[in-house]
Design a protein around this nucleic acid. Structure first.
Length: 417
DNA sequence: TCTGGGGTCCTAGGACCC
DNA sequence: TCTGGGGTCCTAGGACCC
């Protein structure tokens, strides 16, 4: 049985804010989302006041004031920086580290025998001492159980082991279904239909019945709750599969021009983020929604996907595609509240290459520069590399998974472009 | 007036092909 | 009047996570 630890920073954003402002310690602190829209982090004191995750600020301002709640706008640059420091420390404790989110990591802890708990306490002490961030650690044979252990660790003294069947059963008996990793409101209702209302019932349920009525994820979860590991540790950071940029509007948008401007900006930002990861794509999706909180207003939510003939990392082409997708979503008279652009089917720019033959009549350097110019125009600046031998120029870009083709035929390349 | 943003995975159903 | 069936691919949408 290979023990897995989940290390989770307590109230991460709120703890980060406290690092540099000691006066925040011991007081209720909340951190707000992007446009100071809603609560995305709470200190324990704020939780004790009953402030809910996701609570809209404009509805709770008065209550916050009354209780002396300290409110901060979010500072993602700071949180990212502190996160990297915490993760670096964790990486010194094990070679098996999976950074799961900005404030959580799974650690493989093989070979510690009965010193597991002492080791966990050492990790906890070190992170706190070196960064000032308090963490909780749950240890179990599977990730799902480690998650549950972590939740109980937070209620206790910061470390919780669930390495035996007895300990696991006792722990699951203390939790609600929705405390489990992967069960939220909708799934809770679906499980209730087949008579499952507690984590222990889920653990003991027939996996085949679960798969039929609640999907393959729940089947896997039941196995994980029994201590059968189905979700392995990933210590390599996987390549992104999609990159998104989206925003809610401060007020409803009703003109096509405004909506187009917003979507163009998002497409550019998403493309820039994609290039930073040396990826490119042929698939651009745009989505729009009305304000779901205004239930008396007519609701509209839709998305459209455009597939380009060739993959690219070039902003202009992606913006163009996004605009085309938006044209199919536009409806006059609709009060748009949010829009976004998602780049899908991302692939490595360097994973595709091709050969082209240049004219022997021009000097080699000129030929290369001409080739580079053409490829840059096609795929976006700095996304193409060339290597030449004789008249042959090998260019590298990216492979396209489904829809985009690549070709070494200049005419077709230019026509497509 | 004011309710986040960035992801992953799964599935239902339509299009299309033979 | 009767009006295939099976397979794959793709899209949109749902559910969940932090």
């Amino acid at each position: 049985m290979r023990p897995v630890a989940l290390v989770d920073c307590n109230n991460f954003y709120a703890s980060c804010e406290r690092l540099f402002q000691p006066r925040l310690r011991g007081r209720p602190v909340v951190v707000l989302s992007n446009n100071d829209g809603c609560v995305i982090a709470r200190s324990n004191e704020a939780k004790d006041l009953g402030i809910a995750m996701g609570a809209p600020w404009h509805l709770s301002k008065e209550t916050f004031k009354r209780h002396g709640v300290i409110v901060r706008s979010s500072n993602y640059t700071l949180y990212g920086d502190i996160s990297r420091r915490v993760m670096r420390i964790l990486s010194t404790f094990t070679p098996d580290l999976e950074i799961y989110s900005i404030d959580e990591a799974f650690l493989g802890l093989d070979g510690f025998g009965d010193r597991l708990e002492a080791h966990a306490r050492e990790i906890r002490r070190t992170v706190l001492q070196w960064t000032g961030i308090p963490v909780s650690i749950g240890i179990a044979p599977t990730k799902t159980l480690a998650k549950a252990a972590n939740r109980l660790a937070k209620q206790g003294d910061g470390v919780r082991l669930l390495m035996t069947q007895d300990a696991q059963a006792e722990a699951l008996a203390q939790l609600k279904l929705t405390d489990l990793w992967g069960v939220a409101g909708r799934m809770e209702k679906r499980l209730a239909v087949i008579g499952i209302t507690t984590p222990l019932q889920l653990r003991n349920a027939d996996p085949h019945i679960l798969r039929q009525h609640a999907g393959v994820l729940l089947e896997r979860m039941a196995l994980e709750l029994r201590g059968v590991s189905c979700v392995g540790l990933q210590n390599l950071v996987p390549q992104a599969k999609s990159i998104m940029c989206s925003r809610s509007f401060g007020r409803a948008v009703t003109t096509r021009r405004e909506l187009e401007e917003a979507v163009s900006t998002y497409a550019e930002r998403a493309a820039a983020k994609m290039r930073r990861q040396a990826l490119c794509t042929a698939t651009v999706q745009v989505f729009v929604t009305t304000n779901p909180f205004k239930t008396q207003e007519t609701q509209y939510a839709a998305s459209r996907t455009i597939t380009l003939p060739v993959a690219t990392a070039d902003s202009a082409k992606l913006v163009n595609a996004a605009t085309m997708a938006l044209a199919r979503l536009w409806r006059s008279g609709v009060r748009f509240k949010k829009a976004g652009v998602i780049l899908l089917d991302l692939v490595d720019q360097s994973s595709v290459q091709g050969d082209l033959w240049t004219s022997p009549d021009t000097p080699r350097n000129t030929r290369l520069m001409q080739a580079m110019d053409k490829l840059n125009a096609l795929y976006g600046r700095d996304t193409v590399t060339l290597a030449s031998s004789g008249r042959k120029v090998r260019w590298s870009l990216r492979a396209e998974k489904r829809s985009a083709r690549y070709t070494t035929n200049w005419d077709e390349l230019l026509r497509v472009a």
